[in-house]
Write a protein that binds this DNA or RNA. Sequence first.
RNA 1: GCUCCCAUCGUCUAGUGGCCUAGGACAUUAGCUUCUCAGGCUAAAAACAGGGGUUCGAAUCCCCUUGGGAGCACCA
Length: 469
Amino acid sequence: MVRTRIAPSPTGEDLHLGNLYTAYINYLWAKKNRGKFIVRIEDTDRQRLVPGAEEKILSTLKKFNIFYDEGPDVGGNFGPYRQSERLSLYKKYALELIEKGAAYYCFCSKERLDEVRKKMTAEKKIPRYDGQCRHLSKKEVEENLRKGTPYVIRLKVPENQKIKVYDLIRGEIIFDSNNSDDQVLLKSDGYPTYHLAVVIDDYLMRISHIIRAEEWLSSTPKHVLLYQAFGWPLPMFCHLPILRNPDRSKLSKRKNPVWASWYLEQGFLPEAVLNYLALMGWSHPEQKEIFDLDELLKVFDIKDIQTVGPAFDPVKLEWMNGEYIRKTQNSKLKSQILKYYQEYHKKNLSEELVEKTILLIKERIKKFSDYWEYCQFFFERPAVQRLSLLKDSLYIKDIYQELKKITDWKAEVIGERMVRLAKKIGISNSQLFMTLRLTITGKKISPPLNESMVILGKDECLKRLSLIS
RNA sequence: GCUCCCAUCGUCUAGUGGCCUAGGACAUUAGCUUCUCAGGCUAAAAACAGGGGUUCGAAUCCCCUUGGGAGCACCA
């Protein structure tokens, strides 16, 4: 049984884009293998905990249609799914490790640790724990415990050992144990560190594939050591490439919008974002770029993912989102736009108007936030001062008179009359239409004018013209 | 600094020893369509990091150099 998971920490505003990517791959792999996808909240860092972050992360996941089979709010047979609710477990296992000689108590103070680190840095050595408490006698340990000296529990990393990690997309990687520090497993506040908790939980939750970002690759040997110490079978490891900024550094919020819901707020479609994300480090065997989940599930294989960290290109995402919008059914698009403006802009747009304008903007917008750029003038009369852009306002009266005469208010008719008028006045069609466009829409860029005027209605158009002249 | 991962157009990638004068997509440029902007269509420019091997033959295999990334916490 394939069981995958993501383990986000509620320490930010929202789900990170990189986590969304990881979540999607985990979700895909579980789906593809008819397995289960699990969400576990890793909230063991009490200092960095952000209230509300957990809810936000879970809701964002759902908005992207990434549904999980087990998780803190949906339950499951391997709960609780919040590490802060599993505290007693970790301590028990940490003590078991001590029992087995794979871990030890460390009573070193923060100050001493800092000093050791400083000294080592000064000596140009890798800053790491010097192992002072490693050889404490049983008596000394008991003495300290009785006195109530604060302590942590550290992993006793064996010396001169080759640790083999098998990664699904990279193959076998060999680490030297001498490069691993005696990692803290249980903090002095009684909370486990990531390394301890992740191994215990993944084991207890029967996770079969640990699919996570590459940043975890170098701590994997520690995890392997833990599995071995407990005598637990190793899961499959799979380290995904890390998404990069355009400048190739790790995707960060200073250089790119990194919160997953930001893309929703901008009016990107979840399917488009996910489709684009699927193309990060992976490509469709037939080189298709646009495909839905069902198709992806058929051809996706985690082994085909590349190891190079791809740059996330918002421009290509925009293009793809535009493609999605263009292939969406009009009625569906209408409700999506309505919903988008309701949810993210607190606007209740007229359903009728949106429906009428869909055809005019479908090929023009790349994301829903563009809709307002194009269509605001349908809903609100443009501010008069914006019409100061107008150079040819002297023709407004002629245009007004001509339009007023039209009884059959249709796009073709308006078009014909305007072309004829331009000829009569002796100006180019472009000139005349631009003047009219500015008057009607308040902008130099707009949907097709004649059709827009039909939607607005004759009275409103004349009104806008009269306000100028 | 140390350890690990990696290296094809600006970007995402195809390519697993001969189908490669390296293919596709985004972006860019030009043309056509046209009332603006889009969209559509057509075309152009654009890459195997460098050096050694192996081989009849290398983008593809090996080594070195260079370059990039990640990790080295009582953070995850």
